[in-house]
């Protein structure tokens, strides 16, 4: 067995040991995971972002427009001193402002308009029969929206309708829970396969 598999196997067992209780081995592994992952992000960000997107095009290809993000980045470092901390608010403003600007149309389209238009269907079929699914969709949508209506207390008939919305919400939470349980189990099985087959060689 090669050293890589032994280390990966031991670290896997140590992380699983947290399920029993917090212990010195887990604390060591956890600290190592945090440290190594920060180191990894640091190197990848330096290489893929600062070198490839900023320093090389700016200094080798003289793309002068990149002076703007260079200064925005440097302003962020103003947080190291109380005197220059105000400078860091400018790049933060760029991030938050531009994020908000793009969020208005994209959120409106993807989260609201698209969902809304997908919910429209006839409640009677061409032959005049009731379209149960269509009724469930419209009642579910309107009652759940009633639950999210904040201007009025959930009392009386409106309250009952909003309560119906909570039942639809619970159906959604239940189905999501059910589906996710299946996928989490397969992740666990994947790790166990590595432990039992590659590391402990118990199964093939």
């Amino acid at each position: 067995m090669d050293i890589s598999t032994i280390i990966a196997g031991l670290l896997t067992l140590i992380i699983f040991s947290f399920l029993y209780k917090d212990n010195p081995f887990y604390k060591m592994a956890e600290s190592l995971l945090i440290g190594v992952s920060i180191g990894y992000v640091l190197v990848i960000t330096w290489s893929n972002t600062l070198m490839d997107m900023l320093f090389e095009p700016l200094f080798s290809n003289a793309e002068l427009s990149l002076i703007i993000p260079l200064f925005l980045g440097l302003f962020m470092l103003g947080r190291f001193s109380d005197k220059t901390v105000a400078l860091s608010r400018i790049p933060i403003a760029v991030m938050i402002g531009s994020g908000a600007g793009i969020a208005i149309p994209t959120m409106l389209y993807n989260r609201t308009i698209k969902q809304l238009t997908a919910s429209v269907m006839p409640i009677f079929t061409e032959s005049g029969g009731l379209n149960i699914s269509g009724i469930v969709v419209i009642v579910g949508l309107l009652s759940t929206l009633a639950y999210f209506y904040f201007s009025r207390e959930h009392k009386g008939k409106f309250g009952a309708f909003a309560k119906l919305g909570t039942y639809f919400l619970m159906i959604f939470f239940g189905t999501t829970f059910g589906y996710t349980v299946m996928s989490r189990m397969s992740t666990f099985i994947g790790r166990m396969e590595f432990l039992l087959s590659d590391f402990l060689k118990i199964t093939q």
Binding site: L116, A118, F168, G174
Partner: peptide, 23 residues
Amino acid sequence: YPSMTARRAILIGIGLGSLTTSM
């Protein structure tokens, strides 16, 4: 149907909340 419609209502609400916060 019932699950998807609740999800859509949640997303519509999130869309509206995001919109007003962004504004």
